[in-house]
Design a protein around this nucleic acid. Structure first.
Length: 286
DNA sequence: ACGGTCTCCTGCTCGC
DNA sequence: TGCGAGCAGGAGACCG
């Protein structure tokens, strides 16, 4: 489900929960999460006896940093996929359907990972290993970091024939952008989502980078976008859905020019654009 | 190396 | 009201 603003909102809600007691036990459902990939994790048992240090985030990944009884640092990596969520429960609260992992803490609270579609995943590793392995090791810059700008985007994707929308979804180019914010950023930058990256002019790359920053920062300020399932660890929905320019608004008038917005499809994943403000250039580079 | 397509799952919404 | 189709915010695997 979630992209950077949603994952960061979850992280903040987890910080507010102040989970500091030692992990007493680890339970998991029989259902595998992300079978056949490096997400398949049989090592959650590492967490037993570990003490939480802090919650971090990288792109769409949540990282729980812990210290085991020997004093070594461990990490729990959580990816929420499309429908995943974390929740903090007290003793006696029943597990929601599709709960796949439950960590019981020394204060009798539980941290649960719930994911209907099972596109999400969790894994535990020594901290240094976690950072050095996929999927974290080759993530691109955070969109709100100083290193993310037009020059970076151009260097990372300027020679690519891929459509701009797909370039923004590539986590190696920029970490944390998903379909909603990619589609929103392209509107803000007034660029056509299907335009091949190699046809972009240098000044347009700067505009696109600024637009990505803008929509991500706004999503963050609004606590994330809830179109369906997304809630943070306290069960709160986001408030950014009312602020979207185009996503989910196909057929409705453009907020800038009034032209009816149009749905597009690329690689089986849809999006929305304004045919007037995001006109596709013919022949010439933009 | 690159880019396009398929696939993993469940649940919700929409149209008939 | 019931039912099938289509769609969903992700990303790894596979194929040409």
């Amino acid at each position: 489900m979630p992209e950077l603003p949603e994952v960061e909102s979850v992280r903040r809600s987890l910080v507010r929960a102040r989970l500091s007691a030692e992990i007493r036990s680890v339970w998991r459902s029989e259902h595998a999460l992300r079978t056949g990939t490096h997400w398949q994790d049989e090592r959650l048992g590492l967490l037993r006896g570990a003490t939480p240090l802090r919650w971090q985030r990288r792109g769409k990944h949540l990282l729980w940093r812990l210290r085991d009884r020997e004093g070594d640092e461990l990490g729990l990596l959580v990816h929420l996929g499309m429908t995943g969520r974390l929740e903090v429960a007290h003793r006696g609260e029943p597990r929601a359907t599709h709960t796949h992992v439950e960590l019981r803490l020394g204060d009798d609270r539980r941290l649960r990972f719930v994911d209907a579609r099972r596109f999400g995943g969790v894994r535990a590793r020594p901290w240094a290993t976690l950072l050095a392995e996929p999927p974290l090791h080759e993530l691109g810059p955070e969109p709100l970091d100083r290193s993310f700008d037009g020059a970076h985007l151009q260097a990372a994707a300027g020679a690519s024939q891929r459509a701009l929308r797909d370039v923004l979804l590539d986590q190696r180019v920029v970490a944390g952008v998903g379909n909603i914010y990619a589609v929103e950023a392209l509107f803000v930058a007034r660029l056509h989502p299907l335009l091949p990256a190699a046809r972009l002019r240098p000044e347009a790359w700067a505009r696109l980078a600024a637009a990505v920053r803008e929509v991500i920062a706004q999503g963050l300020a609004n606590g994330g976008t809830t179109l369906r399932d997304y809630v943070d660890a306290e069960g709160n929905a986001g408030r950014n859905q009312g602020a979207l320019w185009v996503y989910g608004r196909a057929g409705e008038p453009c907020r800038v020019c009034g032209t009816p917005l149009r749905r597009f499809e690329l690689g089986g994943r849809g999006g929305v654009l304004c045919p007037h403000d995001q006109a596709k250039p013919r022949g010439r580079a933009r």
